[in-house]
Nucleic acid binder design. Structure first.
Lengths: 341, 341
DNA sequence: ATAGGAAATGACTTCGAATGCAAGGACGAT
DNA sequence: ATCGTCCTTGCATTCGAAGTCATTTCCTAT
């Protein structure tokens, strides 16, 4: 007995030709049948759909992508998924893109500036666009422009280059925090910054520092790196170098604020907020936990992700659109980690 | 003056033919030049690579996927990215797959059982495999098998079906926790379960309940849903329905344990662990925060993700391999949220 | 019955890279 | 020189669906 080829054995591999044969029509008809608004007679359509169902046919998106030059893929490039803030953003972005019929190719980086390692994969997959929450050099931005791939930066800006971006306003946020702290009669300020390569980190710290200066308050700045442990470590640093008694602590994000609160209470026996007020930034989940209730600026994640997706899709459809920067104000969330005015 | 077509104007769109023309060779040569182990003369290779660099050429992965029937895409289907535990898993998986030259198509679900909505997209993109941390019905598993798409379930099992999976051992983990609590002389037990559609949740609770029963301890079980708020809510429920004074609380995950600890301390003035011992499961970041130091079972995420990726790649390359279930023991992490024996 | 026009359909080409096959070239052994 | 081998290279075809264009079908109005 000879071995026989089984053309229909693997039902997952049916092509439009298989469906066409089964339905007694041409491949073109099948293609049209799956395309919105194409001209197909009702009876033919039914025959085709029945055949497609019988064969378990799903159009091959790879082949579609090749011929239409639209992959319906968007790259999301994120640096630090372990950061509490980004998972929420990622989930929102993915679900919104899905709802628009766009799939997400995820690139997660070990460090903020590891973008180069993944870019060539981004080019190879001919993504229709990209949303980037990582640091891009001007040359990297230029590469996107050259290839006509629209990019939206998330909480980043195109240092010098005109790039579309969606950001939460660090300056107004920090102003609100500083103003509230000053009104709450705080005098000795400490600031825990983010890592050196973080754009928002630097921006937040700089905004806070300036506002403090305007209001005639001085401050000590120590460098953190956005994680819990560095909230603790940085607080220790501050306690060591500050001569007067610290009474207000501004942290570049919530996670460090939480680390600092725990450290103050547990390692130093400092009462928060009675002896020390601590504020953060982001409005991540744990910030609202009973033990912390961090006074912070909550980023409007839903509106920001919605804007990012809308802007990206607009630019995929109309590449000639010029870049646009959208700045969203955060909301001051008065918690019980700080005595405010 | 006539409008002129500019073939090389958009440098991002160079094809292997463009490179071939520039280098004075055939398209086949270009293709071979980018393929590992193909026979190309050193001089030719250099000419081609120079041309490719000049034209900014990157092979079109879409076209490659079509002809080779290998998309080099793997679907990752995750239900609850906001769950603290999964972002870490996702980041690990993505980076490991990247290192193997495989790209991640991310599908994030609003609920554990929303898989059907994304499956047709999974079929359309002809992914080479999938890693799933969501509930799959037998029919859905069968669909993967039909199409010859290998799946690895992550902390899930193929209820009845033989499917490959990577899990952290709930039973041994809960036994360890229960044993330690019983040795610590606890008598009145409460359990906060996960949501009804969570496999691991049910498994953990069941394991704990049985072990308690074996050791002659009774327990009250209330249903939570894995988030912080439900730790608080469930603790309130327990306090209401329990007549004797609760002295040990077993939570199906760390997040609820944390919620319960906060609630006990702040809403009820109960000292943890003096008056109440609380244990969790997972070993997420916040579990080790100074304020909590939750006694828990830490899942070996690195080893688990490594195994998942290895098993998947094996099965992509050798589809005939039979399913394999790998169970990893978690590590008892004795924190200060429980008095142990 | 017939022309006119719209709708439906199919043949064929295209997207970009991979690969089987055959032809050409280099080189060593005789 | 000559033959045989192995290494390079190009030609032609293929993957699966979309879309152009030409053709056929079906209505409708006259």
């Amino acid at each position: 007995m000879a071995v026989k080829k089984q053309p229909e054995a693997n039902s997952g591999r049916a092509t439009s030709y298989d469906v066409a044969r089964q339905a007694g029509v041409s491949q073109s008809a099948v293609s049209r049948c799956f395309k919105q608004g194409a001209s197909v007679a009702p009876r033919t359509r039914e025959k085709i759909l029945a055949a497609a169902r019988a064969l378990n046919y799903y159009p091959n998106a790879i082949a579609q992508g090749l011929i239409t030059r639209r992959s319906n893929l968007v790259a999301i490039i994120i640096s630090n998924l372990t950061n509490l803030y980004y998972p929420e953003v990622l989930a929102e972005l993915t679900q919104r893109l899905s709802a628009q019929g766009i799939r997400v190719l995820l690139f997660s980086l070990a460090a903020e500036s590891d973008v180069d390692e993944v870019l060539d994969q981004v080019w190879r997959y001919r993504v229709d666009g990209a949303i980037v929450a990582a640091r891009l050099h001007p040359e990297q931005l230029a590469a996107f422009a050259d290839r006509g791939v629209p990019v939206i930066l998330y909480n980043r800006v195109g240092e010098g280059e005109p790039v579309s971006s969606v950001c939460c306003d660090s300056v107004s946020g920090e102003h609100a925090l500083v103003d509230a702290l000053v009104e709450g009669d705080h005098h000795v300020f400490g600031i825990i910054s983010g890592p050196a390569d973080s754009y928002v980190g630097e921006e937040r710290v700089e905004a806070a520092r300036r506002r403090l200066h305007q209001l005639g308050r001085d401050c000590q700045i120590v460098r953190g790196n956005f994680d819990y442990a560095s909230g603790d470590a940085s607080l220790r640093d501050l306690m060591r170098i500050t001569d007067r008694k610290l009474d207000a602590l501004i942290c570049a994000n919530d996670l460090m604020a939480i680390g600092a609160i725990d450290s103050a209470r547990i390692n130093f026996g400092i009462e928060v907020p009675q002896d020390l007020s601590v504020v953060g930034f982001d409005g991540v989940g744990p910030a609202t936990w009973l033990a912390y209730q961090v006074t912070t600026i909550r980023q409007p994640v839903r509106r920001m992700t919605e804007a990012a997706v809308a802007m990206l899709i607009e630019r995929i459809e109309r590449p000639e659109l010029s870049p646009e920067q959208r700045l969203f104000a955060g909301e001051l969330l008065p918690g019980s980690s700080a005595r405010l005015g």
